[in-house]
Nucleic acid binder design. Structure first.
Lengths: 351, 351
DNA sequence: TTGAAAGCGCTAACAT
DNA sequence: ATGTTAGCGCTTTCAA
């Protein structure tokens, strides 16, 4: 019973232990275990080694391997997300999946927004000899990188660097905004109100651009569509929608900067005695877990490709051709259609 | 200019490089940098070393240190959370904060629910010589641990092990349920409906126990209070509340298994032309980010201490007295009071 | 087909 | 007060 042999606290078996038990050299053990190419080991020796490995419950010390080979099979993952919202979580999981598939793990560093802390984190990670770095930032923005990353494969997620040539992956927010608008247009809406998120944000502006593109493409005048500036919170969706409902004619569809604002909008609409989507169509943005899918009626929205971006970042690292990547790669935000959109009601259209 | 000297891809300076430049032995460099006790270094030598370090931008290779000292300053963190809901995220951040404070990092492994994968993950982490393990599980449950963890400091978060003596930290759900109920009782409610979550869950049963304790302590009969079984989704809160509103007299307060159910309840209440909290008081559970705080009116709820549990787990590891800990430690779930609770309206009371 | 030996970058006991 | 040296556990030339 191999397990029974090892008492609590007993030292792990080393390669030397295996070699001794198998009556071979430590090099041979290494050759067998790594199936080193260019080395032929007799079937018999091989079996003896394998038996010894099993008997001692031997597992190579990855730290020692790392020191020797210079590869630690570890990717440093830096986030600036204060509380690991959906963003960092999904991005990590995406990167993690790809990493695992290639036998690597993620060494995670959650840092504040202060650039100095980010730099310190990067250096901490490099001290631990990570093979590559992924830097993920919650709100899309520009970042500064220290010189020390120059020699380390690095991918930026949801951010882009000033003067570095590190490839970045970003959500295609322009297309996201366009797609959301198009859904509404396709249903026959011609009077669409857009309640945007925080104006200063990169994403907000990109989505608004997409909105205008779709409106123009439909032969309508963007200036005649209502756009109101909100702040991505439920309350602002609620307040702005109340304003909207007081107008006449009121819009037949409301597009929100995110799902939370859409929840606020929904409450305001219900309070006014109206129904979604019969009286007013509603679209969110984010596909926030536990919100858009569970609300009544199910909220049509667009998913931010956090998971896909995380996975992409890790995959590029393993593909090993970071230099050939464009400075920015855009990942589409898939539409998630549920029940909150319908054709405008004729009653409202004539109102 | 130290930085300019290092071209891209240039090899990192090693301790030997520093020693050479400072004209001392590599041991001296180590003594200076680690402030090794029992070693006295002349101020002058010390300064020479420090200058060389600065000039070469030297940073010790933590992998090599780890191999030598047997300590990697890394904690393995295992989660079974498929998509890193609020749980894993907050728990990681809590553990991360404590880890950072002690100079350690988190090596993260996200795994499926299958016990074999958990075991494999644990072993992967041990191969990388992590100093300790934290195993965190999303839905409170029992877990099985492999023998290999016996010699490694381990803390369980939100789960407990069968035959191992690893300390566990869990949310005090009984008290949470009791506290929520007490808030309602304190406001004068005597007819409280409890829409529970999934019945099979440990948390659901614990909260229900707390509910009953509070009801009994208030001198009321638990059998006369309505409890309806839901499933933690928005829809079930919506449906059950509709059933509730059809009854007469209808309850003056609704307690929900979680915040998402409370959102469903809110929608049903609004649809029925009633208001929260004027006509009906509402309480959630979880304090789900982006939901409870942003909804209108703000949802009174209880916070699951994910962050606190994660931090606690890491702190115990650094405190280094895991054996002295009780098998289970319960962390309180703080009340978060907002606007969704008021005294029952007299109109309803007499109805 | 296998073994001996050097060495990855560091720490720590032991010399001097 | 500082240097020498022996490893930590592994990979990988080179030799046999």
């Amino acid at each position: 019973m191999p397990r029974a042999q090892r008492r609590a606290g007993a030292r792990r078996a080393t390669q030397a232990d295996v070699a001794r038990l198998a009556g071979v050299s430590s090099a041979t053990v290494s050759f067998v275990l790594n199936e080193t190419s260019g080395q032929s080991i007799s079937a018999e020796t091989r079996q003896r080694v394998l038996n010894a490995v099993a008997q001692l419950d031997y597992r190579p010390n990855r730290t020692a391997q790392g020191l020797r080979t210079g590869r630690t099979a570890t990717i440093g993952f830096i986030t600036q997300d204060v509380d690991f919202g959906a963003f960092a979580g999904s991005t990590i999981v995406g990167a993690h999946e790809a990493a695992i598939r290639h036998g690597s793990l993620l060494l995670i560093m959650n840092t504040s927004r202060d650039a100095r802390f980010v730099w310190a984190s990067i250096n901490d990670l490099l001290d631990r000899q990570v093979d590559a770095l992924i830097l993920a930032v919650a709100g899309t923005k520009r970042v500064e990188l220290p010189d020390s990353v120059r020699s380390v494969p690095t991918v930026l997620v949801n951010c882009f660097a000033s003067r570095s040539s590190k490839p970045a992956v970003l959500p295609d927010e322009v297309r996201g905004g366009r797609d959301v608008t198009q859904v509404l247009l396709d249903h026959g809406h011609r009077d669409i109100a857009y309640l945007t998120g925080v104006n200063a944000a990169w994403a907000t502006r990109a989505r608004l651009r997409g909105f205008r593109q779709a409106i123009v493409a439909a032969g309508l005048d963007p200036a005649r569509q209502t756009t109101l500036a909100g702040n991505y919170k439920v309350d602002s969706g609620y307040e702005l929608t109340r304003q909207l409902l007081a107008r006449k004619p009121r819009p037949t569809a409301v597009m929100c900067g995110n799902d939370r604002m859409a929840v606020g909008a929904l409450v305001a609409i219900l309070e006014a005695g109206l129904r979604v989507p019969e009286d007013i169509s509603l679209m969110g943005y984010d596909d926030q877990h536990g919100l858009s899918s569970d609300i009544h009626p199910g909220l049509s929205t667009v998913r931010l490709p956090y998971h896909a971006m995380g996975r992409w970042a890790a995959e590029q690292i393993f593909a090993g051709a970071l230099e050939e990547l464009p400075a920015r790669t855009y990942v589409p935000c898939p539409l998630v259609l549920r029940e909150s959109v319908a054709a405008p009601s004729s009653r409202l259209r004539s109102a």
